[in-house]
């Protein structure tokens, strides 16, 4: 085995046609750790997540996930990762049960016509217990609240027994108590289960305390490091183009205005 990095990204450039989405990104993330990625709209946050998952072919550079080269071996890398996409992209037009959604991710690894084993169902139950949704086993996904749906999607990611969780905007349209619950859950996964958590968010404040590392992205890597190193006036100005006030509280710096529509 090599080193102990969850993610290694080197000289990464991603283009959509002629448009540069990410330029010369370099960073290494220890395993396990909690990484929060922030940046204005269109700054390439989701693109970075997709590249880590091997869903986008970069123009240049390489990505390794837990020592696996994602470009060469995307399937193997994906088996390490539980992914939680933006909830807005998910169809609520299908009458699928909560349990079946959680099972989806696990069964996807096998080809068509596989039926779930007892072990698969146990893992589904465990995952739903972890997110506190096991009582909703038989409910229709579309009948759940936003926060409940989000927790089910996290359970789907956990059911694949991942070493790393990747979440794209898990707090969008989720109320503050639910946001707290989800954050506690993610933090516990990082501390107790040794799972690396990588999260893209619009609102950095609730996550600062939990984050080992914060990344500010605006097509280029503006800043990367511990929250203390990163949450600084000049970094935010560089990323968002406007001065954003920072308020220190109990030794932690908070960003005034969570919204990033600069």
């Amino acid at each position: 085995m090599g080193n102990n990095y969850a993610i290694e990204v080197e000289n990464l450039t991603v283009k959509y046609g002629d448009e540069v989405a990410l330029e010369d990104i370099n960073f290494k993330l220890e395993h396990p750790s909690f990484l929060t990625i922030i940046g204005p709209n269109g700054s390439g946050k989701t693109t970075l997540l997709r590249t880590i998952l091997g869903l986008i072919k970069p123009e240049k550079g390489y990505v390794k996930v837990l020592n696996i080269d994602v470009l060469r071996n995307p399937t193997k890398a994906r088996h390490m990762i539980g992914y939680v996409p933006q909830r807005e992209r998910i169809s609520v037009n299908i009458p699928i049960r909560v349990a079946d959604i959680v099972l989806m991710g696990r069964l996807a690894r096998f080809g068509p016509l596989t039926t779930p084993s007892k072990y698969d169902m146990e893992k589904v139950k465990e995952a739903l217990e972890l997110v506190g949704m096991v009582d909703f086993w038989d409910k229709r996904f579309s009948s759940l609240s936003g926060g409940q749906q989000q927790r089910v999607l996290i359970a789907r990611a956990l059911a694949v027994e991942p070493k790393m969780l990747i979440l794209d905007e898990p707090f969008s349209a989720v109320d503050i108590p639910t946001q707290r619950e989800i954050l506690n859950l993610l933090y516990n996964l990082r501390i107790r289960k040794g799972i690396t958590v990588v999260m893209v968010t619009h609102d950095v404040n609730p996550v600062i305390e939990c984050s080992d590392k914060i990344m500010i992205l605006n097509k280029k890597l503006i800043a990367y490091g511990t929250p203390d190193e990163v949450i600084k006036d000049e970094n935010l100005l560089k990323a968002y183009g406007v001065a954003i006030k920072i308020i220190p509280h109990e030794g932690i710096c908070y960003v005034l205005s969570g919204d990033t529509h600069a």
Partner: peptide
């Protein structure tokens, strides 16, 4: 199973 996954969440399906 695959059709359901892709219909439900195409990006997620690819990621898994």
């Amino acid at each position: 199973k695959e059709f359901l996954f892709v219909s439900f969440d195409m990006e997620g399906a690819a990621a898994y």
